[in-house]
Computed example of a mutant assay.
Amino acid sequence: MTTTGRRLTTSAMIASFVDEGQKTTSAPFGHALSRLAEQRPEVVGLSADLAKYTDMHIFREAHPDRFFQMGMAEQAMLGAAAGMAEVGLVPFASTYSVFATRRAYDFLCLDIAEPGLNVNVVGGLPGLTTGYGPSHQATEDLAILRGMPGLTIVDPCDSVDIEQAVPALADAPGPTYLRLLRGSVATVLDEYDYRFELGKAAELRTGRDVLMISTGLMTMRALTAAAELENDHVDVAVLHVPTIKPLDREAILRETAGDRLVVTLENHTVVGGLAESVASCLAFAGAGVRIVPIGLPDEFLAAGALPTLHDRYGLSVPEIKKRVLAELS
């Protein structure tokens, strides 16, 4: 307690990364899914007792007859979603990323991916978006899922990405996995003449000296770092990669063709995520390009307040700038 009797709070469970004064949108996933359901009666929502924490409660309130509370049973939820998809429904099933990937992998693989069903799995708290430690930090979800045949994987940057991705995922054949940012989500990409396109990367900034290839919330960080690096006379381009699978190999090969420093940024372990996706893309094409990976280490992370953890593990803007300047020196 403080001397005034006010309880100290931390940002341990906050899954939104909003700078002071930054524009936000409330629960973009929940509202986008509700709007989609008004147009498409086959859309249904499921939750593993986490509707409030994955913004599925917005859909539940708007379409109570099309919402299914499955309890703390992710395997059963994905099995039920598979059955719904078999009869022509389009399910969106939400839980925390750790439970969707670690706990329910076999059901996602054999009940959904193998028959190619249009089930959309929505994973909250991806990567280091909670301070509650390894039981809730899905630092390896991309590595777990990238090898699953036929699965589309999307890591959105902000509310714009999420709102536009929801109908695109519903239209996509086969299963999808969305890394969810929930609550008050930053709205950034509306300033960049951007439109989400499944399987496509987007150049948000041009630059002579450095190319940042980023995904998820790290695109927000990349854009801020790029703007601040102008003060150090460093010209930085930013290529946003919202779709991890299928990867936009053509854009990556095109943008890395010059002699710029190439840096990847991801809210995920450096093992098996964006950095290795980019590296394999370049290697398979015979492009001898060195990349600098900015991401989480290959270890179980500490618990604590998120700003402290992001500084510690190199995801904050000051740490990104420090790493880039060190590589250029």
Rank of each mutant, 00 (worst) to 15 (best):
V236C: 11
R195D: 13
D141T: 02
L253S: 05
G174T: 05
D248H: 01
A138D: 00
A202V: 14
T224K: 15
E163M: 11
L229W: 10
G183S: 01
C157D: 05
E255S: 13
A226I: 11
V238L: 10
D259I: 03
A138P: 10
T187H: 06
A172F: 02
G174S: 10
Y192D: 03
P246D: 06
P156K: 06
A227V: 14
G131D: 01
G147R: 11
T256V: 02
D248Q: 01
P156S: 01
L247C: 09
L217F: 15
A186L: 08
A143R: 14
E255L: 12
Q164I: 05
L253A: 00
L217S: 15
L189H: 09
K200W: 10
I213K: 07
C157N: 05
R208K: 15
A251R: 13
D190Y: 06
D259G: 08
L247P: 11
L180D: 02
H233P: 02
L128E: 06
H136W: 09
R249A: 15
G183T: 00
I244T: 03
A138G: 13
L261M: 00
T152L: 08
R195N: 13
R205F: 04
E250L: 12
G133D: 00
T215P: 07
V238F: 07
A222F: 09
Y177P: 07
P134W: 07
M148K: 08
A168F: 01
L223P: 06
S214W: 03
R146N: 13
C157E: 03
R182S: 07
A251F: 05
A165R: 04
S159L: 03
E191V: 08
D209G: 04
A202W: 01
V185G: 00
T130G: 09
V241K: 01
A225F: 11
R195W: 01
L169T: 04
R221H: 15
H233N: 15
R260L: 08
T224E: 14
E163F: 04
T224S: 11
D190R: 06
T187L: 10
Y132C: 13
L198W: 12
A226P: 03
P242K: 11
A138L: 09
V234A: 09
T176L: 01
Y177Q: 02
K245H: 09
R254Q: 14
V154R: 05
A251S: 13
G199D: 01
L211S: 08
A237Q: 03
D190K: 00
Q137T: 02
L261H: 06
L178S: 07
L229A: 12
D158V: 00
V188N: 01
R249S: 14
T152Q: 05
T139P: 02
R254L: 12
I153E: 04
I144V: 14
A168I: 07
R179N: 03
R249L: 07
L253Y: 02
